[in-house]
């Protein structure tokens, strides 16, 4: 029974995995022949020239994974959120506090969230446009191209994969 459940069954699944996308090892993203990341695993993006990813409780260290596990009224937690708001406003002058999507100042459950909502990407457009000398319209169009709608139009929110968006951003010239 042990052999059936713990050896044969996993090996069968591993065998089928060879046929699946990524060969069961997780899909990777390659730029100029170099692997720059896993499609599903979020990366830390804090530089002004890239679309920044969400805050992470594990600092995007994918050898582990965790949320902040801070209670909603924890004073330390609220201080952290306040600091994130301040940092964001410094890096993105002209943005109103009330326009910042909540996900940009809150940490994800896994700490490896690979996505942003379209609104969270678009609010960073002005900053990136200035740094890179690209028009706002071009960047907004790029975000729209990279946005995935809800599954079948019914399930879940619209998302943009941050790594894919930034790779596409680097390819713009």
């Amino acid at each position: 029974m042990l052999i059936l459940l713990s050896v044969i069954y996993p090996l069968v699944v591993a065998g089928i995995a060879k046929l699946a996308p990524g060969g069961g090892a997780g899909e990777t993203v390659t730029v100029n022949g170099k692997v720059v990341g896993y499609a599903r695993i979020g990366q830390k993006f804090t530089e002004d020239r890239y679309f920044n990813s969400r805050p992470s409780a594990v600092d995007y260290n994918a050898a582990g994974s965790a949320g902040s596990n801070k209670g909603p009224s924890n004073p330390d937690y609220l201080k952290t959120v306040q600091a994130r708001i301040d940092t964001f406003l410094v890096h993105n002058p002209g943005v109103q506090k009330t326009d910042i999507p909540a996900e940009l100042v809150t940490a994800s459950g896994s700490g490896l969230d690979p996505d942003l909502s379209p609104a969270a990407a678009k609010i960073q457009v002005r900053r990136i446009a200035k740094v890179r000398g690209i028009t706002d319209d071009r960047l907004n169009q790029l975000i729209d191209e990279q946005t995935k709608g809800p599954l079948l139009g019914l399930f879940g929110p619209s998302t943009v994969n941050v790594l894919a968006l930034n790779v596409a951003l680097d390819a713009l010239k």
Binding site: Y77, V81, D99, T106, A107, S108, G109, S117, A119
Partner: peptide, 21 residues
Amino acid sequence: LGIDQSVAGAPAGNMEGKEAR
């Protein structure tokens, strides 16, 4: 803290500990 948790185009509500997808 002055954050609007229902900005259009982003998931509304308490996003701490939740995934964007």
